[in-house]
Design a protein around this nucleic acid. Structure first.
Lengths: 226, 226
DNA sequence: TCAAGAAATATTGTCGACAATTTATGACTC
DNA sequence: GAGTCATAAATTGTCGACAATATTTCTTGA
């Protein structure tokens, strides 16, 4: 674990936060594990105060849970909690798509189309893992940015997407939904480009709901084997 | 400003957070004002470390904005930002109403009906200020709790509603929408009780959207006088 | 061997101090 | 009076230390 790079407008605790956020999302600090302030402060060569500030921020984006006088633990999402997140995503991303249809610039739409094309290329070259791990969320990320609603962007990109990324890293994506998802992405781009907010919302919600239902099926199958 | 009461499962910084959260929402620390750590630590008789942890949490719920090496300032919401919040509310509260129609218990529904009745009584007795300042949000709060989606509850109740409360405290509510809003509340209760999630969502979204449009009109009138 | 209690150890929360950065003040010039 | 620069003062970020709390280890008795 290497401390994130210095940068003009950041504090040491910002850098510790970035470092830990990545380490948690990527599984270097495993879900469920207890965070030892002295150990981590020593490993990162910072004082506990900076570390505590970073841990507070990790708590704010729900990557750790914290208990008074006990400390922080990396979150473990059970199936129920994942489904909760997908309900919230459906609502927020539906609204994001509606607002994107109204606010997205030509440049942003071009970037979105390019990304969807890149994803097609990846899938044709049997790189569908890249799409599922990272690319899918990149697509969603661009649409949320295109909403031009800073509150929406903050809720999704600074909070929920960390958790989604962590979950994907932890469990992989074995969804068999790649081709349909990509087709849905393309259709969403088209209606956003056409400025049809209502249809964009409907299609995005359907898209996220399909992922949720897929997850529900997977969770039910997992229960059957336990 | 009196430090919030001690309680088994809280730390001093939790108590500082509660104290400051209330002080900001209620305007005791005015919007836009710079937060001086030394002054505030002295006033509350705590060390700067506990105060900084509390300020970090205020930042997480967007009640303050923070800049490295400059410090924290109580947020000032302009009209644009308020409208952003209302778009997010529409999405999240629509979903909350849908989920509430599925998950709310009989007891919860009874409590919701009681609250709506209490609000009618207040309005008949010319206490409509109470409804607009506090009661309206209490109603929404109960529905969000009734969604039984902890992520949704967290986003709205631990984050956005602080800001909404702050805004209402700052600007008052002069909306002329009291009677229509209450009728909408009652109708929403009925469809939730009937278990009709889709209609609950539609009606809740319409309700929040009407508030947003009302706010838009007020903002346009305010611009006209500037 | 196991369970309960006490003691030791480690960790978390808070403290005040120091270093780095920003802001306020004063002096000078035009 | 306004603008610029240098200096002083204040504030913010980080540090290590201490107090409070939790966890681990050890001891004792059944």
């Amino acid at each position: 674990m290497i401390l994130a790079a210095e940068n003009d407008a950041t504090t040491l605790s910002d850098r510790v936060f970035e470092t830990l956020c990545s380490a948690i999302v990527e599984g270097d600090i495993p879900a469920g594990s207890k965070i030892s302030e002295p150990d981590l402060a020593k490993k990162l060569q910072v004082s506990r105060a900076s570390l505590r500030e970073a841990i507070g921020r990790l708590e704010a984006c729900h990557l750790v849970t914290r208990k008074p006088n006990v400390g922080a633990r990396v979150v473990e999402l059970d199936g129920e909690q994942l489904l909760e997140i997908y309900h919230v995503r459906e609502a927020l991303e539906g609204m994001a798509a509606r607002l994107a249809a109204r606010h997205m610039t030509e440049q942003e739409i071009d970037a979105l189309r390019s990304l969807a094309s890149e994803h097609s290329r990846q899938i044709e070259q049997d790189q569908s893992d890249d799409f599922q791990q990272v690319g899918d969320l990149d697509f969603h990320f661009l649409i949320v940015q295109g909403s031009h609603n800073s509150r929406l962007i903050n809720l999704l990109c600074d909070d929920l997407y960390h958790l989604v990324r962590m979950y994907r890293h932890q469990f992989g994506m074995t969804s068999q939904r790649t081709q349909p998802a990509l087709a849905e992405h393309r259709a969403i781009v088209d209606v956003i480009a056409a400025g049809d907010g209502e249809m964009a919302e409907l299609m995005m919600r359907r898209h996220v709901r399909a992922s949720r239902e897929n997850l529900e099926r997977m969770l039910q199958q997992a229960e059957r084997f336990e």
